[in-house]
């Protein structure tokens, strides 16, 4: 058995080395591929905080992923055509400064998560799954029917937004920015789940009565976790829009939510690095089998079934059989 730490370290190092090699071999396609993995992993890390550690199965996290993307896209569009987003009560113009974009994404996504969480967390189990899905679908259809930002066709970002003096149009630079965010979200998650807050969140997963009977209100714990989770996924969505220089309603779709869950299941539910390993595996799998057959998802489905039947802890659980965070 390999220790969980080695698997984690191995995966993140491989990702970095892979993109560096691709960069020096002048293969921008593979740099972009590594960036996609990084961003997907980060989005799923956000979801894993509530799904893996709080047992809150949200089938609506695409709402945050897509919302983050649209915030990025809308700000960049307005910065590009110099029209303010709104003029009353004060003039609010677009921005192509990534810091501004990230701060706004974090603020708006936490507001959205607060609202969605406030309603959804009054339910549990299957109802929670359905109501998170319903919220996400509402936003999805709203995006489709709102013509000023591209509606069904999506919204193009003409110039990738900038960060200090870094040339973000350089694929490797942009990869490193995303890689930084990945590292940060992994670090934050590992700190959070070992903290008193994390212990309370993990306790709320199955046993609300016990949590209440030590004086803790599970709803508040879960709501806050939901907000942190929404922010992480939202910033990943913002990066994804910048990567593609395009954002469309498909990033808000339930398929997107489902993919995030698939990353977590393949990698290992409740493991900090589970989403990263799941995303690496998923994208690689898609690359290899996608080129043989357009029905590659059939094999993916088979794999998911096998994981659920025989390796409940996903790849990490299968390889390590231990949990470092305990």
């Amino acid at each position: 058995m390999i220790s969980e730490k080695i698997i984690n370290l191995g995966c993140i190092t491989c990702l970095l080395i892979f993109s560096l090699v691709a960069h020096y071999m002048d293969e921008p396609y593979f740099v972009t591929l590594a960036t996609r993995i990084t961003i997907f992993a980060m989005a799923a890390i956000g979801l894993n905080l509530v799904l893996g550690f709080g047992n809150l199965i949200s089938l609506g996290h695409a709402a945050f992923f897509g919302f983050g993307g649209y915030i990025s896209g809308i700000l960049a569009t307005h910065a590009f055509n110099s029209e303010p987003i709104f003029e009353w009560p004060l003039i609010f113009s677009g921005s192509s400064n990534l810091i501004v974009i990230w701060v706004l994404t974090a603020l708006l996504c936490s507001a959205l998560a607060l609202v969605i969480g406030f309603f959804c967390l009054r339910t549990t189990g299957v109802y929670f799954i359905m109501i998170t899905l319903a919220f996400a679908q509402m936003i999805y259809y709203f995006a489709i029917s709102w013509p000023s930002y591209g509606g069904e066709d999506g919204l193009s970002i003409f110039i990738r937004s900038s960060l200090f003096n870094i040339n973000t149009m350089n694929g490797m630079n942009f990869f490193l920015i995303c890689f930084f965010w990945l590292g940060l979200s992994l670090y934050l998650t590992s700190r959070i789940i070992q903290s008193p807050f994390g212990l309370a969140l993990r306790a709320s997963r199955y046993n609300l009565d016990r949590v209440k009977s030590v004086g803790i209100t599970p709803f508040r714990i879960q709501l806050l976790a939901f907000v942190i989770s929404g922010v992480i996924t939202g910033i990943a969505g913002s990066l994804y829009a910048d990567l593609n220089r395009f954002v469309s309603p498909s990033s808000l779709s339930w398929q997107m939510s489902g993919e995030l869950i698939v990353f977590i299941i393949i990698g290992g539910v409740g493991y900090i690095y589970g989403p990263l390993i799941g995303a690496i595996f998923f994208v690689t799998f898609e690359q290899i089998f996608g080129s043989y057959s357009e029905h590659w998802q059939v094999f993916l489905g088979l794999l998911i079934i096998l994981t659920i039947l025989f390796a409940r802890g996903g790849l990490i659980g299968f390889l390590s059989r231990s949990r470092d965070y305990e």
Binding site: P196, F197, I216
Partner: peptide, 18 residues
Amino acid sequence: LLALIGIEKKEFTFFSKA
């Protein structure tokens, strides 16, 4: 530890290890 976190109102402490 959970019980003590509850009664000492430490459940919103994020960054220190419990």
